[in-house]
């Protein structure tokens, strides 16, 4: 769009106006052409999941065109959604994600409020520390964490390994630092006059947080919630390390360890499971795309 105005402002527009506008049309056509290519590249795996999930095992092993469904069937969906094991995975995933989101918000919102507004000794260092923690990946911590929890079980007799709720302790290490970080950014952008007015009116710090900051920073809160949910739903390494019994597994690990039996790949069911596992984040994304993107870009642009 900006290029159009440039063309008009260009000194040679009388001579070249026609060709400029033709250039512009061609640039648009090329843009659409390449965008279509990239969109196909992006969407092939999920679409292929859908195609395969609608096929019967016989059709999958037949040497027909893999990109087309000749005899659509819902048997894979029926098979998975009536299997207690699969529903257990789904339930475990849902419980873990919902609890982790709650824990994350309870920890990070007050902490972000304190770090953004109540300057105290070491608060800037702590804010930087939170950001650094966010950069520590799961693949660095899984071995020591496993040992820590094994040791904890030996000392106290409380066995946490191979229970789904051990993930409630571990996932916050991934979600809390980022959520705190983006909430600091959102809280810091709220004008100081708002909370000063509240304090003058006699509100306590807690009231200032719940009556003013949370409602005003609601978009940021939604973005942080979405982030915490998608991270806990998608996490693969920690559940793979910490849970092994089939009734304790979450969805991604469950699909990979139970549906792949030795060399026998039941691809119809695997793709159906993968699609059902991808569905919750995709649905959230479809309805709350703007919040999702706000959360995605906030990490580097806020603060």
């Amino acid at each position: 769009m900006s290029t159009v105005t440039i063309d008009k402002a260009a000194p040679t527009r009388n001579v070249k106006y026609g060709s400029m506008s033709r250039d512009r049309t061609w640039a648009l056509r090329w843009s659409y052409f390449f965008l279509t290519l990239f969109a196909i590249f992006s969407l092939v795996p999920p679409i292929y999941m859908l195609i395969t999930s609608l096929k019967s095992s016989a059709e999958i092993s037949a040497a027909t065109n893999p990109w087309w469904v000749f005899h659509p069937t819902l048997e894979n969906y029926v098979g998975l959604l009536t299997s207690n094991q699969f529903l257990r995975f789904f339930l475990n995933s849902a419980m873990v994600s919902i609890f982790v989101v709650t824990i994350t918000m309870l920890i990070s919102v007050p902490a972000a409020f304190a770090l953004a507004r109540m300057r105290f000794w070491g608060s800037t260092t702590l804010a930087t520390g939170v950001f650094l923690t966010y950069l520590i990946p799961d693949s660095l911590l899984f071995i020591p964490l496993f040992k820590v929890f094994a040791q904890f079980g030996e000392w106290t007799g409380i066995q946490l390994i191979n229970r789904w709720y051990v993930l409630l302790f571990i996932y916050p290490t991934l979600t809390v630092p980022f959520c705190t970080w983006i909430m600091i950014g959102y809280f810091a952008s709220i004008p100081k006059e708002l909370d000063e007015a509240a304090i003058i009116d006699g509100a306590s710090w807690f009231q200032t947080l719940t009556r003013i900051f949370i409602p005003v920073a609601l978009p940021g809160l939604i973005a942080a919630t979405i982030f915490a949910f998608t991270v806990s739903w998608a996490q693969f390494l920690y559940p793979l390390v910490f849970t092994t019994s089939t009734d304790q597994l979450v969805l991604p690990v469950g699909i990979i360890t139970t549906l792949i039996k030795g060399d026998v790949f039941n691809w119809g069911q695997i793709m159906t499971g993968a699609l059902l596992g991808a569905a919750p984040p995709l649905i959230i994304y479809a309805f709350l795309m703007d919040y999702y993107i706000a959360g995605l870009t906030a990490g580097a642009t806020k603060g």
């Binding site: 992006s42 969407l43 292929y48 998608a234 984040p281």
Partner: peptide
């Protein structure tokens, strides 16, 4: 969309 799908699920595809 590729970023939204859990990587464990899309890698299966």
């Amino acid at each position: 969309v590729p970023w939204v799908i859990p990587p464990a699920m899309s890698t299966l595809a």
